[in-house]
Design a protein around this nucleic acid. Structure first.
Lengths: 253, 253
DNA sequence: ACAAAAGTGTTATCTTTACACCCATGT
DNA sequence: ACATGGGTGTAAAGATAACACTTTTGT
C-alpha cells in the first residue's frame, strides 16, 4: 500500500463522488480503473481530514480528478449499512496481486482502514465534460467517462451509489434549473433540449420546449452560431441567474 | 457524566432527529430540555453503534423518545463543517453546573467525546402526534412539542438543522404523498387540507382541493364522522397505497 | 326553519400541446 | 431554387380555479 497517513482522516467515514458529464446525447460518469490486476472499477473516493469540511473533502476529491475549481456539488445520500466495508474488495485485490505474506506484512494500517466499516457520504457533481482533464491518481490505471447505461461492474456498492445519484439527479433536474452546469458557457436551445430528453428519458416538442425555457427569463440571447450546416443558424444562449425572473427552484418541465 | 460506553460507537459521527408532529393547525417538533441548569434545548440525538445501520440508529433514537415502532424516517442532510462540535455548548454547561475540578476529573472520556468534531447525519420523521408518548431519557428534564414558529434557542446548530429539515419536508410534501404519516389512521378531508395549508403556507379552495386529492385514488372512503356539530358530517378516509392508482411520487398540489 | 359546513357540478380561465407557417443558411 | 433545421404564432385540447347549488346535521 501507498503510505497514506490515515491518522489525518476521520475514521469510518468516506466520501464517494459521482461526477456527471454530458456528451453525444449521453449522460456519463467519471470512473477510474485501479492499477491492480483484476479489473477493479471505482468512483473517485477519499476521506475527510480532521480539519476539513465534508463538502470541501468532496470538492478536493472531485477537483483532483477533473482539474475543475468550482464544480457544482450536491450531497445526495449517506450509505450507512453496518456491513458496508471494503473487505471483500480488498481480499480479492490482495489474492490477485500479492503473496499472502505481503498483505500480512502491511505496516501502514491500510488493510484495516479499508476493510473496516465505512459510512459513505455520496456527492454528485455536474461538470462541462469539455473542461475536464481527467487526472490519474497514483492508484488509477485509467480514468474515463462511461455512459450511464454502459457502466462496468464496480467495487463495493459503487454501482448502487451511482444509481442512487442518478435517481436524485433526475428529480433535481425536473425541479431546479441545474443542467447548465453540464454545458459550456454558451449553448444552443437544442443542447438544452437534448440534455433534458436524455436525463429524463422523455421527448419534448421543439417549439414548446423553447417557449417554456425562454419564459423562465434566465437565458441571455447572444450571437448566432454558424456551424456550416445548410440551415438557419441557431442562437447561442448564456445562463444568467441574475436575469429578470426570480424563479429558480421551481418545477420546470 | 453518565457512564456511556463511547467505545461502542463510531467516533466523530452523530445522528440528529427532527421529529415532526401536527396538532391544532400547527406543525410541531419534539424537543428536549436538558436536566442541567442553563436552559439547554436539544434535538433527540445519539451515536451509531459499530454494528448498527445509521438508519437503525436514527430509528432507535426516535423510537426511544416517542415509543413508536415503525416511524416514517427520511435522511435529509449531512452537517459536516469542520468546526462542528459541542465544545461551546459543553463548556457553558460545565460552567453553569459544576466546579472546574469536576470537569477536569472526567474519567469517562465524555468531555472529549462531546467536544470533538462531529459529523451529523440529519433524519426527519413524521408521526401521529396522538400516538406519541414522550419518554424522557436520563438527560432530559422535559420532552415537549414546540410549534415550528415558536422554537426555543437550541444548542449547537440544532436550530439550523430544524430549518433545513423543514425546507426539505416542504419540498417532499409538495411532490410525494407523505403527510398521512402525520395523521391517525382515519381522517377527514379537512384534516388533510389543514396540513397542506400549514406546511406549505398556502390556501386551497375547499372544493377543488377535495377533487384533486380524491383523483389520486389513494384514499378509501369510510363511514361518516359525527362530531355533534350542527352541520353535515364529513366522511372519514383511510390512506390505501394499494388502491387503484399507481401514482405515488408525483407533483400533487 | 335555519345556520353551518360538506359534497357535487358547471362555467370561465389559464396552461399545455400540436402544428402551421415563415425564415435563414449552405449547396 | 431547394432542402434543412430554427424561430414565431395560433388554435385545439386539457387542466385549474372560481363559485353556484344541493345536502346533511343539530339547534
Amino acid at each position: 500500500m501507498k503510505p497514506i497517513h490515515f491518522k489525518d482522516y476521520l475514521p469510518n467515514l468516506s466520501i464517494d463522488c459521482v461526477i456527471f458529464g454530458y456528451e453525444h446525447s449521453q449522460l456519463k460518469v467519471l470512473i477510474s480503473k485501479l492499477i491492480y490486476k483484476g479489473d477493479f472499477y471505482a468512483l473517485p473516493s477519499g476521506f475527510v481530514c480532521y480539519d476539513e469540511d465534508t463538502e470541501n473533502a468532496a470538492k478536493r476529491i472531485s477537483r483532483s480528478r477533473t482539474g475543475i475549481e468550482n464544480l457544482y456539488l450536491i450531497q445526495f445520500q449517506v450509505f450507512g449499512k453496518s456491513n458496508r466495508n471494503g473487505k471483500a474488495f480488498m481480499d480479492k485485490l490482495i489474492e490477485l496481486n500479492f503473496d499472502k505474506d505481503v498483505s500480512l506484512a502491511d505496516t501502514t494500517g491500510g488493510y484495516d482502514w479499508i476493510t473496516s466499516r465505512s459510512v459513505s457520504i455520496g456527492y454528485y457533481s455536474l461538470v462541462d465534460i469539455k473542461q475536464v482533464k481527467p487526472t490519474l491518481s497514483e492508484l488509477d490505471e485509467s480514468l474515463e467517462w462511461y455512459p450511464i447505461d454502459a457502466l462496468p461492474s464496480m467495487i463495493m456498492d459503487h454501482n448502487e451509489i451511482i444509481n442512487n445519484a442518478l435517481h436524485v439527479l433526475r428529480s433535481h433536474v425536473a425541479e431546479k434549473l441545474n443542467i447548465f452546469h453540464l454545458l459550456p458557457e454558451k449553448f444552443t436551445m437544442k443542447d438544452i433540449q437534448d440534455i433534458y430528453e436524455t436525463i429524463l428519458e422523455k421527448n419534448y416538442t421543439r417549439t414548446n420546449f423553447q417557449k417554456k425555457i425562454l419564459e423562465l427569463n434566465v437565458l441571455e440571447r447572444l450571437e448566432k452560431k454558424f456551424t456550416g450546416a445548410k440551415n438557419k443558424a441557431p442562437y447561442l444562449y448564456r445562463y444568467n441567474k441574475d436575469a429578470s425572473n426570480p424563479v429558480h427552484e421551481v418545477e420546470l418541465i
